[in-house]
Computed example of a mutant assay.
Amino acid sequence: LIGGGDGFSDIIQFHPAYTYEDFIEGLRPTTQNGELTYSIVPGRFLEFCEQAEACEDTCVLIIDEINRANLSQVFGELMYLLDDRQDTERFITLASGKQFRIPTNVRIIGTMNTADRSIALVDNALRRRFAFISIYPNSEVLRLYHHREETGFPVDKLTSILEDVNQAINNKHYELGISFFLTKTLAEDIQDIWQMEIEPYLEEYFFDDQGKMDEFLWYKIKHKLSQ
C-alpha cells in the first residue's frame, strides 16, 4: 500500500486498558518549573494523522488486536469521520477546541484473532465501517518458505501432519497456524516447538477427548516426520 511513494506505516496494539485519551487526545500530567500541571496531549492517532497530512501518498495505521479494547470508547466520535472518507469537509471538534479530520490518504488496518471471545465487542456500528478479510493457515506459504531458505526440512510431511491436526480440530477459528514453523532452524527446534507450544494448545482443545490428543503427541509426530 505504501510502496513507491512518500507514505509510511505505523503499528499500535490495543489492550483492555487502552482509552480514547491514548488514541485521540486527553489530559496528561506534565511538569513545568517543578510544578505538576495537566495538559491536553494528542494521542497516537492524532499524531499519525498530522504526519500523514504532510504526505501525498497512502499512509497505513495497523491496529493489532483491535478487538481487545472497548472500541466504542476508544474511537468515540471518530465513528462519524469513518462514515464517509471522501467527504473532506467532515470534521469533528475535539475537547481541545481543535477541528480534526482524517486525511483521505490514511488507511486503517485492524487485525484480530477470530478465536478470541472478545470479538463480540466489535459491534455492528464499527463492522459496517470496515471491510473484513478472513485469513486462515496456508500450507503453501510454509512450503515456499522452506524451499526458498533451503532448510532441508521435510516440509511436505509437516504440512500433511498439520492438515490432519486441523481436520481433527474441525473448527476453522481454532486451526493450528504455520507461524510456529517459519524458522530456518526448524530441524533443531521442532521438538521444543511441538512439546512446549503445540501439545499444550492441543491438550486444552482436546481436554475431553484424550484419544485424539494421543494421536498428536511428539513421539508419534517424530515418527511421521522421519518416515
Rank of each mutant, 00 (worst) to 15 (best):
E149S: 04
E175V: 05
R143V: 14
N171Q: 10
Q167R: 08
G152Y: 06
E163V: 08
I161H: 04
P154M: 10
H173C: 06
S179H: 15
E149F: 00
R148F: 05
L182T: 13
E149R: 02
P154S: 12
E188T: 02
H173S: 10
Q191C: 05
E188A: 06
N166T: 05
S160A: 12
N166H: 05
D156L: 15
S160W: 02
S160Q: 11
I178Q: 14
E175F: 15
T183C: 07
P154C: 10
R143D: 15
F181W: 13
K172Y: 10
H146C: 09
L162N: 04
T151C: 00
T159G: 12
S160E: 12
N171E: 15
V165A: 00
G177L: 13
S179T: 14
T159K: 04
L182G: 06
L158C: 13
G152D: 01
D164N: 11
L186V: 02
T183E: 01
A187R: 07
I161P: 03
I178L: 07
E149P: 01
I178N: 11
L182D: 04
K184V: 10
P154N: 12
T183S: 09
L182A: 00
D156N: 15
V155R: 03
H146G: 04
F153C: 05
F180P: 08
N170K: 05
